[in-house]
Computed example of a mutant assay.
Amino acid sequence: MSTSSEPQQDRSERGLSAIAGERRRLINLAYRLLGSLSEAEDAVQETYARWYALSRQQQEAIESPGAWLTTVAGRICLDVLGSARVRRERYVGAWIPEPLPDRTEWISGRAGGGRAEPADPADQVTLNESVNMAFLVVLESMTPAERVAFILHDVFRYPFAEVAEIVGRTPAACRQLASSARQRIRAAQAPAVPMTGQAGLVRQFKAAWEAKDIETLVDLLDPDATMTADGGGLVGTVLRPVEGSERIAEYLIHIAGKAPGLTLLERTVNGRPGLVAQHAGVTVTVAAFSLADGRITRIWAIRNPEKLRPWNGEGSEDSRPGNEPLPTSHGES
């Protein structure tokens, strides 16, 4: 025999399930806004804390909980970006966005050193063009308002009227912010390189590095190539970018000589072919690449162990967004 409370309870349970189901999308959004998975998780956690702090009546009065969560998460990320700019000015050496492994590699156990199960947050962020390292680095050059307006509108397709509510500007001002951000992206964009070509070039680079073949390394690098490393002051690394193919090649050979027992592995880094360096089965460096005209133009080497936790199987189990597709073209509606 049913009771009158059961339909209401069912609706409540369905509502809670729908709210929890938003976590995947919010993590995808927050990572793009912040460039840090740990900060993205914190922002989403705070978003949910604010939702559950509302009374039942307040929650039921919200017409679209998903839109409410997005608005709150967007505003939290905007505040985090403002404070992050100050923190990153004090950061030891260069700050590079957190690298992400490919979800399928985590599932097969490759990224985590042989683990059979995917470790959170491996499948938390859809790996498409809006999370490749070159794209995220350009986002770092934007103002917080530019970044939020651009990501919300151009990547997640929110209309400017909704973006304006989150950013606290007029729709016209948000349109201008997104346009300015779009120009930065276009100015920094390198010609597209087929994925197979990228993988082949990275494979040649790996082989030359392992063989300590400095001439081949120089040939694979653009003459004006730049290598930037991020150790966060927690591990030893160069504090300033290394510029020029010869200097980069010499530095890489020097590192190879100082780190016996280092294993190089081909891995997908933020959706692109990259390299992972492991020592005794522990990931110590993740390298992302930018390529153009058949050569490597940029190398980002992340060595900060706090940013390599997902690569070593560390992470929480409470939020595992899947791999839903996100649009990557940049409209102006």
Score class of each variant (00 low, 15 high):
V276S: 12
R87P: 03
V72G: 00
D219C: 01
H330N: 07
I214L: 08
S38N: 06
L54M: 15
T283N: 01
G200Q: 11
R85K: 13
R247S: 14
R23P: 00
N304T: 11
R147E: 09
E60K: 13
P159G: 10
E162F: 15
E41P: 02
A61Y: 04
R247N: 15
G82T: 01
E332H: 13
T47I: 14
A256H: 01
E266I: 08
L220W: 06
G244D: 08
S329E: 15
D222Q: 02
R247W: 09
G109R: 08
W300F: 15
T263H: 05
D42A: 08
T170Q: 13
A259P: 01
P260E: 14
S290M: 11
I255W: 10
N323C: 05
P99I: 10
L217D: 05
R103A: 13
F150M: 12
E314R: 14
S316F: 10
A53Y: 09
E146D: 06
T268D: 05
A43H: 10
L16W: 02
V131W: 08
L308I: 03
Y158L: 11
T263W: 01
P118I: 12
T228N: 10
I166V: 15
I107S: 02
Q278A: 15
A40H: 03
E117K: 03
A199E: 14
R50K: 13
S290V: 06
G271L: 02
V218A: 03
G74W: 14
E140P: 04
L177H: 02
E60I: 13
P310A: 15
I214Q: 12
V137W: 00
S38M: 02
R182H: 14
A30M: 00
P121V: 04
V276K: 06
S2Q: 13
L26K: 01
R32D: 06
G257I: 08
